[in-house]
Design a protein around this nucleic acid. Structure first.
Lengths: 339, 339
DNA sequence: AGCGTCAATACAAACCTTTGTATTTTTGCC
DNA sequence: GGCAAAAATACAAAGGTTTGTATTGACGCT
């Protein structure tokens, strides 16, 4: 395993100084064009690869972007996550950067992880999701001036870049659809309190319920897992009677399907359900799961672009990007009740 | 934003030399115990955080582990992927390392990405999946002596660490189950030729077909996307007559469901289907998708452990780990035909 | 008292690049 | 041909750590 070739080797080989070589390779106008091309050629021929760590040390920059993977992470991610990783990595590679993923095991662990990323310079920027209105992670990042983009708004929405899906609208779509089934009760299964998207979903659902004349509304704030969806649904569906369940994510809806199966009830007949985020497979359930979706690739591209702009663009307030993505309802049938 | 505190600051503050401070903090026995504790205390008090980039430069190590994300990456990953990221990051954090993700857009791009990781020292080790028997990525990594673990065996199985799921067995499970439906024809939908797991699946399927007396077997080598599954199924299901489809991944099976819906055919009646990897939602399809699964968390733990052992353990041949994971059949109904 | 030993710490080089400044070479002009 | 200006290159420091070697001082031994 031959030792790596650095600027020094090229310089010695050509009888030049490392500084000249360095400048030539970064196309500094101060080196003579012909010298420059000689150097480039030699670098190419000798297989020179710049030492990223030396550069990082000198420049105080890591050329990495961190993505925070928030819990709960069960067997599958929301569909957008992979798209985001893929798109982000592609875009970053174009600028010589790479992608770092940090997976918190507990929500409480996240501020600590963010701190570590900033203090230990584990990355040059952070993409984080699942925001709260008062989000300690975001507060810290703003305080330190560290580049970041959030997926979800915060209290300080004017002072940082964010992208968010209009979950209030998603809640409305769900409840509007479910109201067609004329349920006796509406159950909203949303994520824990404080999480921006979950709160918005509840707001939208409540407002639509009011508008559609649904009086009996119960809100459930739970973790977004199939198990939690099942647990809640088991408690509800026993006392049957035309229940409607608006689930913020398909994982919860899958739990509802499981509960219905256990109880021998037929969704689309004894109860109506609406999901969210259009997980793979939700199209093929019985009955097909009505849900909402967003253009994942567009969201991923937006987040990537904003992150790069945070890193490379001007640092002024004007440059903050705010963008709201509208969800689209996919009415497949599970939101109705037959009889 | 105050400047970061480094060894130099502590040294100056205490009137010592940086080398002493450095040694104290790495508990070198050469510094006097009391000096050592004074230094530690000062470091703590002053909020010292070691500069990862300087360490990296000095040590020639990046403290990062790369995970290669192979195409096709559509809207969702195989369920194991997230589990892997999460587990790996957790384990790595324990050793002061972090996780880098590289997402190839095309399969052809992968060798190049691996090269870049090694040559540019983007990481200290690589985890990669979707191996081929003759895998140029693996060949290159072995040649360079770079630490890595593969998810899937290769031609040089004795000379590197790998973990793999027994896809031959998975193929057998699928065909054995489907044979119960006594189909007129068996179609095996596997991933492109050359990919180890896909080839093994076909081998297992063929062998089971022979054993079960299924004569009419057609092999389809396609990308694992819902769209491809649908396309193939559209071509097959028209000429109806008790077809059985063994799909290497649920995504393909989902495509089959879609095709059946379009053609007005009922799976579980007009045709039988078997999936793979137990995607979320597959339990709730109509009919419930029979598939196979593996203990994702165990696989993730194994891969993580082996990677860490490659990095920190002895470098001898003896230390290579080889591990085969057996899939488990989940018989839910779609593998049968009613009449 | 002098010498050798050992413990404790300081010095300095190295990892590789980048960049400000100094030095050398070339060019143009009278 | 000589001189100033400009161009091209060399020198050196810096970034924060680690680590081999040198230095200092204290101690015990004969």
């Amino acid at each position: 395993m031959n030792t790596r070739v650095g600027l020094k080797h090229i310089a010695e080989h050509l009888g030049l100084d490392v500084s000249t070589v360095s400048r030539a390779l970064r196309s500094d106008p101060r080196v003579k064009p012909e010298t420059s091309s000689t150097i480039r050629e030699a670098a190419e021929r000798m297989g020179y690869r710049p030492n990223a760590m030396a550069r990082a040390l000198k420049g105080g920059t890591t050329n990495r972007v961190a993505v925070l993977l928030s819990p709960p992470q069960q067997r599958f991610a929301s569909p957008i996550f992979l798209e985001l990783l893929s798109t982000l990595d592609q875009r970053l590679r174009g600028t010589g950067r790479s992608l770092a993923v940090f997976a918190a095991q507990e929500r409480s662990e996240e501020p600590e992880i963010v701190r570590a990323i900033v203090e230990d310079r584990l990355a040059d920027g952070i993409v984080l999701g699942r925001t709260r209105l008062e989000d300690p992670r975001v507060a810290y990042l703003m305080e330190t001036g560290f580049p970041f983009v959030t997926f979800g708004r915060t209290e300080w929405e004017q002072d940082h870049s964010w992208i968010e899906i209009d979950y209030a609208h998603a809640g409305e779509l769900a409840v509007e659809a479910l109201s067609l089934a004329q349920p006796n009760a509406l159950h909203v299964l949303s994520a824990p309190e404080g999480l921006r998207f979950a709160d918005q979903y509840v707001i939208g659902a409540k407002s639509a319920a009011l508008r559609c004349g649904l009086g009996n509304v119960v809100i459930h704030r739970i973790e977004m897992t199939e198990a939690m969806g099942e647990e809640v649904a088991m408690g509800l569906l026993e006392k049957n009677g035309r229940q409607a369940l608006a689930c913020i994510q398909d994982s919860l809806a899958f739990g509802v399907y499981r509960a219905a199966a256990k109880l021998g009830l037929a969704l689309g007949k004894d109860a109506a359900v609406f999901g969210g985020q259009n997980f793979p497979g939700s199209e093929h359930t019985a009955p097909p799961l009505s849900t909402f979706s967003t253009e994942d690739s567009r969201v991923a591209r937006l987040l990537s672009d904003v992150m790069l702009q945070r890193l490379d663009g001007p640092k002024d307030q004007q440059a903050f990007t705010h963008q709201v993505i509208e969800p689209r309802a996919l009415l497949r049938g599970s939101h109705l009740m037959d009889d």
